[in-house]
Every structure is written in C-alpha cells, then in structure tokens.
C-alpha cells in the first residue's frame, strides 16, 4: 500500500512539475513574416483593417494602452511618430490589447476618452478577444511591429521597442522605429530589425 501511495505521489509531483514547466509553443510573427489582415473596432466605432488605408506603404502597429506607465511615457513619442510618418505613408495603428476586466483603466470608454483628450490622429483599436495580440506575439506595452506593404501583403520589418530610453526621449541614442521606417522609405534593409525594452505585460483574460 505504502509503495503504491509513494508511486502515486511521485507521479503527481512529476505531473505538477511538468505542468508548471510546460511552455506555450513560440507563437507570433517574426521579421519577414506576412501579416494576416484583421478588423478591429476603432474609438470612433468604425472597423479598421490594414486594407482600410489604401495610401499606406506600411504601418507602425503599436500595441499600447492607457494604463501602463511605460506606455504612458511613450505616448507623446507615438503621437510624434504618426505626425512624422503618416504623411510619408507609414501611419501609426495603435491597438489596445489589455482585458479591461483586469485593467479597468483600459476600457473602451476610457480608450475613447484618452484618444479624444490627447487628440490621437491615428486609429486606437480595441483587441477585445486579444486574438490579434496573440497572433502578432505581442507580449508587452508598448510593443511595436513595423509592417511594409509588398504587393497586397504586409510584411513584418521591425519588432520591438520605440527607442532605447523609456525614461527620457531626449536621451535616447537609438530610435529604432524611426531608423527602421527611414530605411524602409529609402528602400533599404532594416539594420536593426528587433530590439527589446522593459514594458508592462499584456493583461490577458484569465482562462
């Protein structure tokens, strides 16, 4: 009896360790991947997809939110990116992926308010099911995916941080997104196709 119990206990322990260490298969886009178009609701109630803007040469797709302190530090820089690049064919497309059940400050109403208060000149889309954040492999806010239009497809050209100093934009020595978009506009390959930064984890719905 005792040994059976011990074996069962050992098996249970093994199972527990296995469950804990089980990792999700690496998902999400890598640089060079083709992005599947999506349709998400903007703060004005209209649906927006990559195909909506026929003038776009690409997009600065930015997973961001109202609440994350790092995202807040980057808000002005996101607005500036759109100001600089929308007219050149690379507008910002902001997507809010957090579950408002966990992060009430990221509710649709408060997204609308934020976009209005800060006069966002770009779409601020809600990823209600979080499917788009998952498809992209977004993990934190702010998390940028620069995509470039090739024919009727959009391909990932850059993934990661906006620049290398979240604390102080004026101290950033590498402006990753600007450099990537500038290179794309010149028809060049992106020198730094990915760069990391500390951000807030996306608040996923509890399973």
């Amino acid at each position: 009896m005792k040994t059976i119990f011990k074996t069962q206990l050992a098996l249970l322990l093994l199972l527990a360790v296995g469950l804990v260490s089980a990792r999700f298969a690496p998902a999400g886009y890598k640089v060079g991947d083709t992005v599947q178009d999506f349709s998400l609701k903007n703060v004005d109630g209209k649906m927006v997809s990559l195909a909506s803007n026929t003038q776009a040469k690409g997009y600065i797709i930015t997973f961001t939110c109202n609440t994350c302190p790092v995202a807040k530090l980057y808000e002005e820089r996101i607005i500036a990116l759109n100001q600089k690049y929308a007219s050149k064919g690379y507008p910002v497309l902001a997507i809010q992926p957090n579950d408002p059940g966990i992060s009430p400050g990221d509710s649709y109403d408060l997204m609308q308010k934020r976009a209005k208060d800060k006069k966002y000149a770009f779409p601020y889309l809600v990823d209600e099911t979080q499917a788009i954040a998952q498809t992209f492999g977004a993990t934190n806010t702010p998390h940028v995916f620069v995509v470039k239009k090739e024919g009727d497809k959009f391909k990932v050209a850059y993934i990661g941080a906006i620049d290398n100093n979240s604390q102080d934009a004026s101290q950033a020595t590498k402006k990753y997104v600007e450099e990537a978009v500038d290179e794309l506009l010149q028809g060049k390959a992106v020198t730094t196709p990915s760069a990391k930064a500390i951000g807030c984890s996306i608040k996923w719905k509890k399973a």
Partner: peptide, 15 residues
C-alpha cells in the same frame, strides 16, 4: 534595456 535583456534570457521579450 536591449543591451542586457538577452543576457538574462534570449526568450525574454521584456515584459
């Protein structure tokens, strides 16, 4: 952060 995140783990995205 890009200078050290990978040194902790290449699989760390930074969140």
């Amino acid at each position: 952060h890009n200078t050290w995140i990978d040194k902790i783990s290449p699989e760390w995205s930074g969140s």
